[in-house]
Nucleic acid binder design. Structure first.
Lengths: 219, 219
DNA sequence: TCAAAAGTGTTGGCATTACACCCATGA
DNA sequence: TCATGGGTGTAATGCCAACACTTTTGA
């Protein structure tokens, strides 16, 4: 059992997505030490002895954003022996979705923290480039057959805002009338009394009937 | 970093599916020792210091079945602190698909090894019940939008055999004409010259154009 | 000749797409 | 009043599901 080779370190990394400024953004941190010091990476940390993987991911998420009760799902586990030059680290990646403006990126133990558009990612440490690809793919795919967009939206929103989020993530325009029909027919939305007043005609506000993941054909 | 708590053990488990006797079957082993000794579980093992997770899963698969070059994909990682009563074990589960009759279940370090229909699973050790559920769900879902059935079929097969596999896994009958149209139109199959002669009218034999995972709408 | 599986096309319904005009508001 | 985004219905198309009879073989 306990041979001479050191036991692998078990860690989690969290790819946190938000939509802001018309773009998909992720939270990156600067690796504080080791051979990769200064490089950008997704925030992560070692899993505590009494903690589940998801708990560790939520802890890290909370440390970076101050948020709890956020949508979080396991992506996959990266465990190649040489993925971290410093030690054998097996890391389970999670994807988290948060609404724009709810976040104030917190440095904590990191030198710096930044929201970066996913189409402008810098060179990333470890195998985090592959992690980023996998996370974006997963998000795109799951938008089509689940209601997880709710994670990216504030409690109330207009149909146009919802449509815009789909368009940003999928990278293509959607027909307003068609998507409204589908969304309203899905039964997942509740119309509110209130309206959002902006520079132009006010828009009806909606909320999600439940903020829990459901598999439903959305697109 | 290295506190007093022992580092978690990093392991893999493999859920091996095959279709035989008109049923989905999985390979189970009897846990050799520890508090769960005698209970059934999916075969698994500790990840070696120089091994990737997938390599460890392939090694285990080969040790149990003698097979290599098999379809294998990561399912997810199970890491609850109390999932194994004996030690903290973080285990990444894999799903493997093999063709019937290509396997001779090998005991190795286990007391016993058996192919068991997935709808007749005994009580399983650890959190392997959840693992089984997740594996079956994944397989069902992925059949619809990828060509991974090839993993369950021998090199050549008839369209009826292919249809039968879909029916067994999905648990519902499929229309012969409709599925033939889709399969032949998909361009994934090559018709062979040979025919399979059985008790009745001979059937045309086919093979897959490539035995690599491709995302294609199949159902 | 009979039983059992292989093989083959057409049709109707449903879902998806494409598309254009009027409305309400703030500036 | 004008610019901007909000709100709405219909028609054409393509996709999918339902459906029955003939063929070939071994027994």
């Amino acid at each position: 059992m306990s041979g001479s080779a050191p036991a692998p370190i078990v860690a989690v990394d969290v790819v946190i997505f938000t939509i802001d400024g018309g773009r998909m953004q992720t939270l990156l941190v600067q690796v504080p030490d080791g051979p990769c010091a200064g490089a950008w990476a997704f925030p992560g940390g070692i899993v505590g002895p009494e903690e589940s993987l998801e708990e560790a991911a939520r802890r890290e998420l909370r440390a970076r954003t101050g948020l709890r009760g956020v949508y979080l799902e396991q992506l996959r586990t990266f465990g190649d022996p040489d993925r971290d030059p410093q030690a054998r680290v097996v890391s389970t990646a999670y994807v988290a979705l948060i609404a724009a403006k709810t976040n104030g990126a917190r440095r904590g133990r990191y030198a710096d923290v930044a929201w970066v558009p996913v189409d402008r990612l810098p060179r990333l440490a470890y195998d985090h480039k592959a992690m980023a690809r996998a996370a974006v793919e997963r998000l795109r795919a799951k938008l089509a057959y689940t209601n997880i967009v709710y994670g990216l939206l504030p409690p109330t929103f207009t149909l146009s805002e919802l449509q815009r989020i789909y368009e940003i993530i999928l990278g293509r325009p959607l027909d307003r009338r068609n998507i409204r029909k589908k969304l309203l027919a899905s039964g997942l939305l509740c119309a509110l009394e209130r309206q959002r007043r902006g520079a132009h005609r006010p828009a009806a506000l909606y909320r999600f009937a439940h903020r829990r993941p459901v598999v439903v054909r959305m697109l």
